[in-house]
Design a protein around this nucleic acid. Structure first.
Lengths: 134, 134
DNA sequence: CAGCATCCGATACGATACTG
DNA sequence: CAGTATCGTATCGGATGCTG
């Protein structure tokens, strides 16, 4: 739920029953964080406009919001150089770097994407049968 | 990274994001899928109401939507028993079970949640300085 | 019980315009 | 360059009511 600064996620509100990995998911896999962290982790330090160009579908507003969130969570380090024109660089933090095994596990699992696609085809072929009623 | 089984894989549908793990994130870590998969993976087969009771903050409508999605993606198996009253059971599929290492990696990383929390406190303590203008 | 249909409010996101 | 501010919209999720 890509929550901003203060709101608790709907998973967090029921900690006694909710799965323990939900908080991690909220932090690491909220809406645009994965491409940002991935890029910073894979290709190193980036200026704002460089991130914009790499993640072509993101708007500056959203990129700013997500970078702020990641900076606040300690996953990204923002460095402001008071020059003219101004230069701001973002790099992954040590904490962010600790996500590498996670990303690797994600990448490993992507071999199953074909199976997911096949499951969708099968489901879509079966579904009309299930919902047929007239 | 973008591992492709045979033909055009869904991995390549969003190359503009420059993030090969994004498709996996979309499938596995979309809105409510994590608690559902976690519960089914950890505690086995569940009826609809049992899932409702375990994930206390989810509404039946959303639970249904997410279960349909997970079923379509082949991560969850739905079994309908035509009884009175009707009984429906959900269990994780073999493909869904292959997510276990991923979940384990997530759980491992949760030891860093304290550091995230600390980073937030630090950021919130510094932030007023950055935006101070009077 | 297990759901689907419908309405509705919150809000995340995109588009645009404007600053230091 | 690196944002911020404002606005409109599309989507998501919650609440309610109704079926087999």
């Amino acid at each position: 739920m890509t929550n901003d600064t203060m709101s608790a996620s709907p998973v967090d509100v029921a900690p006694e029953q909710a799965c323990p990995i939900a908080p991690v998911v909220d932090i690491v896999f909220s809406r645009w964080t994965t491409p940002i962290l991935w890029v910073l982790n894979e290709y190193g330090r980036h200026r704002f406009v460089e991130l914009e160009r790499r993640i072509t579908t993101i708007t500056p507003k959203v990129l700013t919001e997500r970078l702020r969130q990641l900076e606040r969570d300690g996953l990204v380090v923002r460095t402001y150089h008071p020059e003219v024109p101004p230069r701001v660089e973002y790099e992954i933090s040590e904490l962010g770097r600790s996500l590498a095994p996670l990303f690797a596990a994600l990448a490993d699992w992507s071999i199953n994407l074909g199976e997911v696609e096949q499951a969708r085809l099968d489901y879509d072929a079966r579904k009309p049968v299930r919902s047929r009623r007239t």
